[in-house]
Amino acid sequence: MLTLNNVEIQLGERHWNYAIELDTHGVYALLGRSGSGKSTLLNIIAGFLKTNAGDIQWRGDSILTLAPAQRPITTLFQNNNLFSHLSVSKNIGLGINPKLQLSRQQQLDILNVLENVGLSGYENKLPGSLSGGEQQRVALARCLLRRQAILLLDEPFSALDATTRQEMTALLRTLIDEFKPCVIMVTHDEDDANAMNATQLRMESDHIVFA
């Protein structure tokens, strides 16, 4: 269970209050217009923003004081998921070891996870030579390999064309069924939410409601 216990945040003039309980293996889609505070919620859960009040708990333990990298969380961002100067396998490897000191087994894990997302043979390529969809799949591969219990998706498809979007959604759905993380996806597109079979949440003025 991921619990947001009256988490409050003040950003400039705006103020938000988040209170919600999410299932350990639930798949949620958070809808709302841009500027409504969707991404703010992800940033709070991931630890990129400091809150003014309240608590965040994962399975009963507070994660509020943990640094982003110490939380049981992995994030797929809308863009800039990859370092353009590092190969695909190094980009993924950074997800397991931030010093990039990888054991033999971990190197093999990287090759396996690349196969999972359908990118076998891509390990030595640079991100610049990949299409937008392929780049997102590399980022997804890293998320999978990090084996974190919570997966945050910050508009992961909005930079992709319609066909690639469908492929990504299907792939994501399969992988979620297999690994069963707690998923929160931020999107402004209801079709994405439906395609993911997600429980819909909505931002209403300054707080969050089940749709």
């Binding site: 940033n43 991931a46 990129f48 640094a67 992995t74 931030p98 990039l100």
Partner: peptide, 14 residues
């Protein structure tokens, strides 16, 4: 890349 750096815990000399 700041958020990515934070979420992967890449810091210091690395």
């Amino acid at each position: 890349h700041d958020k990515l750096l934070q979420s992967l815990g890449i810091q210091g000399f690395s």
